[in-house]
């Protein structure tokens, strides 16, 4: 699938970077192959979807019973929510309504700059070089790591955690409504 906001080159850098943050092992692929770059791309490009991909729907995903599809029906944003999320993603860009309490650097800009700082050859560099660069750009790496964790362990409807594979790597069941757990499963070992 083509990225919606990242360039292909930026996407390739994120595949490599996310894989260093949560590397592959015998239990499964690394975050780069578990949809983390797609999660980030979907967030950065949330407003190219209608409704914007900010809040997934409810009440059940269909993974544990009930009809499928409800999580994929994203909520509409009202006027103020759109202002908040555009500010958070696109930055305040000098617009007075976005700068009430000062300018906000958007996620898009933080990603564009952060990816550039990792270097154009990042994806092809040896892993020690990659780790070293990630460590040197700690502020960006912290952001990227938080989003990578959200991607790998959050519902797949946000673009990451491909087919629930992120949950499977750690033996987590994900959302469980409407099945839930029995009292014996709650109280027993």
């Amino acid at each position: 699938m083509m990225p919606v906001w990242l360039t292909e080159r930026e996407h390739a850098t994120l595949v490599a970077a996310c894989t260093r943050l949560i590397p592959a092992d015998e239990d499964g692929p690394g975050a780069g192959m578990l949809g983390a770059p797609e999660y980030i791309d979907t967030l950065l490009g949330a407003f190219s979807f209608d409704p914007p991909r900010i809040w997934a729907g409810g009440p059940v995903s269909g993974r544990h019973g009930g009809p499928p599809g409800a999580f994929a029906r994203f909520h509409r944003l009202n006027r103020l929510d759109e202002l908040a999320w555009r500010t958070r993603i696109e930055g305040s860009q000098g617009l007075p309504e976005r700068e009430r309490n000062g300018p906000v650097v958007g996620l898009q800009e933080r990603y564009r700059r952060g990816i550039e700082a990792l270097g154009h050859d990042f994806a092809e560099s040896p892993t020690e070089v990659q780790d070293d660069r990630l460590r040197r750009h700690q502020e960006f790496t912290d952001l990227l790591y938080r989003h990578t964790c959200e991607a790998v362990y959050g519902p797949p409807e946000y673009g990451g955690n491909l087919g629930g594979a992120g949950w499977r790597t750690i033996g987590f069941d994900g959302d469980v409504q409407p099945r839930g757990w029995s009292d014996a499963e709650v109280s027993g070992p």
């Binding site: 900010i54 809040w55 997934a56 729907g57 409810g58 009440p59 059940v60 995903s61 409800a70 999580f71 909520h75 103020l80 929510d81 202002l83 908040a84 500010t87 958070r88 906000v104 959200e150 362990y153 959050g154 519902p155 946000y158 994900g174 959302d175 469980v176 409504q177």
Partner: peptide, 23 residues
């Protein structure tokens, strides 16, 4: 309503129930 769900992203990372600190 049927809007609530087992969704750690929406409730804990994205201010679904507000208030959004930017607003």
């Amino acid at each position: 309503a049927t809007d609530f769900s087992n969704d750690e992203v929406k409730f804990l990372q994205r201010h679904f129930l507000g208030p959004d600190p930017l607003l």
